[in-house]
Design a protein around this nucleic acid. Structure first.
Lengths: 252, 252
DNA sequence: CGAGCTGTTGATCTGCATCAAGGTCTGTGG
DNA sequence: CCACAGACCTTGATGCAGATCAACAGCTCG
């Protein structure tokens, strides 16, 4: 049902040629499936790979010395998993399947060779890492400075946007495949408080829940409550030289 | 008194040749000085540059809709400033001089051309961005999950390490050129509470203060209190192909 | 030599954590 | 098809870390 090699995240800054994308796809390993709760890669592992999430939802997290878990990111299909760990010896985060998932491994050795041969690939990864950094800054600000209700509203709005891009949110309705406890670990709250806030959003008519489905009937009203970072990515950074293959030395 | 083009951050993953570094230095603008409190670049500005911090301390911050300020990073000499904004149209963060500073502008157009010509430069920036992302994750975890005292201890330990690298901390003593209010905005606390926690660290003998100087007499005891992320960067990622100039097409 | 930062301290308040106990749903094996 | 275990959600009572409010003191710099 899903495409075998989703590229919308790779293409988002449109600095890759069709050739670049197909070079990346050629170094990708086979599609591997994992059941719910499977750990795709554990924190601390010496794993020189990143993964392309083909289908399903994945959590990236690590545990603190206190034993508490911090969830770093909820990954959706098309996302690159584990790329932060490329600058360290042992993996920073654990990757855990939230639903049954399909991933494809990208060996860092091959990716490194590709980057050296085709600078636009390194540039695309750089821009994408910067984008993730901004998302992290926004969440830091939300956790540091805004109340629980606003954080949850922010999360729901952001998730809705990202799901809409991949056709998993229709008319602002989607399946919320994350528990309230996980939401708490993502936003720095206890599951008890997440529950109370969700009920309040429900009571106030800002969200409509049934079973694990969520509907956001009034985005503007929800935005009024939320911690809103308004950012527009530049589809094509003006400062980047135009795409061309002339500088490539990569072997196919 | 300071070198005109500090490169320790550029070289930290040792994937750049001496040539690469000198290419970067050649696109850098002249050293520009700013007084304390000067805004080097404001949030929202359409500024297609990054800056190399040559001397002095700089804060990166943005303001939330609520009017509160989130400080994202305390930058020290050698740091690249404003690089997150390369993937957006309007600058994400404001860069404010905490002390009198010297910076050199790196036009993104020139840096883009350099990256396209020399893939190792794009790779070095990618690794450095990933490192910053990890630092942000650690701070997110600290703000979300650890008490005020631990966050402040973590900040002091980290700052001491970074200052030691550039010779601004001797025997774990350094000048703390940031106000308690700014520390609060960095760690998600009020200045009142920062004050109380600093006094407590002082009272407990974990830090020794006089005027704006801080001494950390017992790192281990301070670490026992702190939120400690123990991470080792890989000096030279094993998966990167060895350095060489053969793939370069960059014009000098 | 006074104005405005910055640091310090006390009193009080509150958002969220903690503790505790049910209730509901889901999948599984008998 | 039912029983039942475990995961998940819900709700109440209570506690506390850190916010807020309010002074005031020391320092720095124009």
């Amino acid at each position: 049902v899903h495409e075998p090699f989703p590229t919308h995240r790779l293409k988002e800054f449109s600095c890759l040629t069709a050739d670049d994308v197909s070079r990346i796809s050629r170094i990708a390993g086979p599609a591997v499936e994992h059941p719910r709760h499977a750990v795709i890669r554990a924190e601390g592992a010496r794993d020189s790979s990143v993964y392309l999430l083909v289908d399903g939802w994945v959590l990236s997290s690590f545990v603190l010395r206190s034993g508490e878990r911090q969830i770093l990111k909820l990954h959706l299909p098309g996302d690159m998993l584990g790329s932060t760990s490329m600058c360290v010896d042992a993996a920073v985060d654990s990757l855990t399947a939230l639903t049954p998932v399909t991933v494809r491994r990208l060996p860092l050795e091959a990716l490194g060779a590709l980057m050296v041969g085709s600078p636009r690939i390194a540039t695309a990864l750089l821009l994408s890492a910067q984008k993730e950094r901004i998302a992290l800054m926004d969440r830091l600000a939300a956790v540091a400075r805004s109340p629980a209700l606003s954080r949850i509203a922010m999360f729901l709005l952001d998730l809705n946007d990202r799901l809409a891009l991949i056709g998993q949110s229709r008319e602002n309705s989607f399946r919320l495949r994350i528990t309230q406890e996980q939401l708490g670990d993502l936003l720095g709250l206890t599951f008890v408080h997440v529950n109370r806030m969700m009920r309040q959003l429900d009571r106030d008519g800002l969200i409509v829940r049934q079973a694990s489905n969520v509907h956001l009937p009034d985005l503007d009203r929800l935005r009024a409550v939320a911690t809103v970072p308004v950012r527009r990515m530049s589809a094509q950074p003006a400062w980047l030289p135009p795409m061309s293959d002339t500088n490539d030395t990569a072997a196919a």
